[in-house]
Nucleic acid binder design. Sequence first.
DNA 1: CTCCGTAGTCGAAGCGCTTCGACTATGACA
DNA 2: TGTCATAGTCGAAGCGCTTCGACTACGGAG
Lengths: 343, 343
Amino acid sequence: MNASRGVTIADVAARAGVAASTVSYVLSGKRSISPATAQRVMDAVAELGYHPHAGARSLASRRAGVIAMMLPLRDGMHLPVLMQFASGAVTEARRHDQDVLLMTADEGPAGLARVAASSIVDGLILMDVEVRDPRVEAVRRLGLPSVLIGFPADAAGLTCVDLDFTAAGRACADYLAERGCRDIALLGASEAVYERRTGFAERVRGGFLDHREDRGRAETGPVRRFAGSAVAVPCPDDPVSVQRTVKELLTARPELTGLAVHNEPAVPHVMHALADAGKLVGEDFHVVVIGPDEVGERVHPRLPSVLVPAERLAEIAVGHLMRKLDGDDVPESTLVEPRLTTR
Amino acid sequence: MNASRGVTIADVAARAGVAASTVSYVLSGKRSISPATAQRVMDAVAELGYHPHAGARSLASRRAGVIAMMLPLRDGMHLPVLMQFASGAVTEARRHDQDVLLMTADEGPAGLARVAASSIVDGLILMDVEVRDPRVEAVRRLGLPSVLIGFPADAAGLTCVDLDFTAAGRACADYLAERGCRDIALLGASEAVYERRTGFAERVRGGFLDHREDRGRAETGPVRRFAGSAVAVPCPDDPVSVQRTVKELLTARPELTGLAVHNEPAVPHVMHALADAGKLVGEDFHVVVIGPDEVGERVHPRLPSVLVPAERLAEIAVGHLMRKLDGDDVPESTLVEPRLTTR
DNA sequence: CTCCGTAGTCGAAGCGCTTCGACTATGACA
DNA sequence: TGTCATAGTCGAAGCGCTTCGACTACGGAG
């Protein structure tokens, strides 16, 4: 053992009285080794506190044991979601004996080219993918094994994971129905907001309206026959428009008792408008929001919300990436069930 | 150039008509190379899109070009601060041509031992260091070059960076004085909250009270002679105690017109108590908080606050680490000026 | 009793890079 | 005009690991 340097495989081999290659095989399990030898090697490893040199390993095996995670560290992503995601990804990666290299989205395609060419990472998780994302093209060109969070315009051949927005819409309708609402509405966004995410708003609407049909399933619980009606109305962000839209909606549908709001900034104004109209939210009227949980928490009364199960998303993304690195097939598209949090 | 593998230094050397070692020297600048040769090499590098293999480089040079950043990814750290820090650290690291490996605090000392022994990183930034932190001992034992954010009980021989709490206290007093307050008070915390951070509360108090002395400096602006008085009172977290404390304070010091609150959860209750007492905050009475900016934003009226310049902290930490890796000396202790944000 | 497959182990050949020592011009100096 | 630094370049020796092919025993099949 060299004093100034670290413990090498040769040190372990010497200590265990075997060849270095044998140590390697014990550690990797790629060839069968007698239990007695394996034990001696493991003992030596433990006694010397041996950890393989990451660089040497990566050079010899063409596997770095590191994955890159590119996060939009600056801009408007919802922070708690981001943290949960990052935390979940690191934890899951460690479970697969991988480390995580953190990159910011503003390194862009050039950053991806760099990490790919330098073999510093084996794969990549790209968070917050947009419909037209230059990084997606780079990923495709580089052939770097990767998993995207979000769906680009052309997802062919890529592995994408995202929230199941149809299920989110459905969850809202279910929630309202369970509270006894017969006549419900979805207050959507001004479409401009969603241009980054194709079909995003549409899918929520689809899931919400889908509820008009009989979706009860006897085997999973009580059959819920939804006898009422559901509508979806778009809604701009500004306070005045929100107030007007809600007012019009209530006038047009006096029987309305449930509202799902898929428009983060509108939520407070919706609450105002409902109060003005004499609705008692939580009692004779129910509201649920689709968005980060803070939105539901900052108004009075606090509203239930459908949110992104970020940790689960991260686990799935990392899991998929690992399987790709092992040469296994993974589904191109994975949709994650949203979670509805009641308060 | 090998088709299936990446571009190697040999490919570049062949293309430029030089030896591989020459390419290496051009890239590292460790020996002088004629401008003409250097240019040919650089052209070849660009044409082939060459990036040195990180593993090979790390193996040969004993420098990984990666630093680890251990963040408390799960618990109660203030999220915006954490993100700013992470983002700042990555950006600054890239500026030094380093990548950042993300670790969670719950990998603990074993995680540090692992990354140190495997030479996967050259150095370490340890965020949210506590007074008794098992990771600190590990860092010391491993001899891994590192920079800590926060101060452990025994910081001897370690490089620590943190907010300058004395300056934070002073900034609050300054702010109030500038608004014309003659008689000001610091509402502190129940000491229990601060047990993680030695002297933390005391230093804020020191900075705040320090103001009683004449600190005017003619050369940097108008001489501010603070003729009034300042006191500091501790304060428990619970609403009732806060109300009582504020009430007593106002009774005892009827001339009081300025208050600094160094107690995050107490802020809303302080505002209530002041309203009850008929004080018009922002007009005849001034309040400033020491804590994350959200605290000041969630009450009415919004309050100015002294916050952690996380990005700057990250820059300094990474900068220090780089200098340590280069064998340069850095100060053991660095205190960063707080920022006061008015609203 | 011989032959062969298999489990268990070893040695050597790289992986792609950095770095050290050596070598050759080149020009400065005496 | 010979001598010496010095700048500029090359070749080779590793860095510590994985992996391939080869070798040795050993046991079961023929």
